[in-house]
Write a protein that binds this DNA or RNA. Structure first.
Lengths: 175, 175
DNA sequence: ACCTGAACACCGTTCAAGT
DNA sequence: ACCTGAACACCGTTCAAGT
């Protein structure tokens, strides 16, 4: 069966989730797809634009989740939607680093609607806070053990990270 | 004259400031120092620990600046010191990405005193915000033009970035 | 103690050529 | 239209051997 941009992106997402950015090379990706590395360049321009694609997929996943969630208070629904985006990013190793790059490269199109729909001035601090927080937590995991799944044990440092994330977020969102 | 860890770090800082992380390779660094790549490994364990060294230098620069500044109001002196750290980081391309990594790898020792001395709960949101904000701005510069000096024209987007940085910071620091 | 030379195991990307 | 094969110009790191 012929390769498509979608199957390439799918395989890339799987590598990212299971092994991380260090293993997400064009050569490894090609090997997983049973194809020569050069074949990938028919479907994606280069590695950069592949990463932009991946960032967009994560945003889409978060948008989907947000749609399936009942409308509540304006503020808490915003916070919950951002927390859902965070959960999505935490499924893919080093995803915050990727989004940080993709966001600089392609602008708000790689972010979920919750973030892009924010008022300009609060957006200016919320986006850095969200991506910075996730990047730090992911890098910490990265160095803690280079190749274990980022499992979340209750009461561990991850829950503290989530609590601290929500309080900081609330602070930036309430006038 | 013999190489030292310091001269290696100095050369690395210069490459980072002038050309960016993409040009900061062990081989390029060795070439600039007139030495074989393998020689570097006598002075630094690996590239990772060199980056940690660089992050520490930037923190030290910010600490120096903070010491030379007169004591004012508790809050405004904190904000000024963090802004000074931001100014230091903005002198070195992709420095926020480096600090993000180094911070995960080596903890608070790579950060300036203003940040490490913060109360734990506010520190948990201020550090992500600071590093996230700077990373975004730097990556934007990176993609805007791959090899121009990040000059700051008055009234440009950089001043907006600084203003937005200060307001977000104030929000996170005032109870 | 400090550095060279050579090697190992990789990268991303291009491009003629095949089907 | 889609992919192979081969090449180009790189990486970080190790390690015996030199001085």
């Amino acid at each position: 069966m012929a390769l498509t941009t979608e199957t390439v992106a799918d395989a890339a997402m799987r590598i990212l989730a299971d092994f991380g950015l260090g293993d997400l090379t064009m050569r490894r990706l090609a090997r997983d797809l049973g194809v020569q590395p050069s074949a990938l360049y028919w479907h994606v321009a280069d590695k950069q634009s592949l990463l932009v694609l991946l960032a967009g997929r994560m945003a889409a996943q978060a948008d989907d989740l947000a749609r399936r969630t009942p409308d509540q208070d304006r503020l808490t629904s915003t916070i919950d939607a951002i927390a859902a985006y965070r959960d999505v990013l935490l499924r893919y190793r080093e995803s915050a680093d990727i989004v940080l790059l993709a966001y600089a490269h392609s602008g708000r199109s790689v972010l979920p609607a919750v973030l892009t729909d924010l008022d300009e001035v609060v957006r200016g601090s919320v986006i850095p806070f969200v991506l910075g927080s996730i990047a730090i937590q992911q890098n910490r995991h990265l160095v803690a053990d280079d190749h274990a799944p980022p499992s979340r044990t209750p009461g561990g440092p991850d829950e503290h990270a989530e609590a601290s994330f929500r309080t900081g977020l609330t602070r930036l969102l309430t006038p």
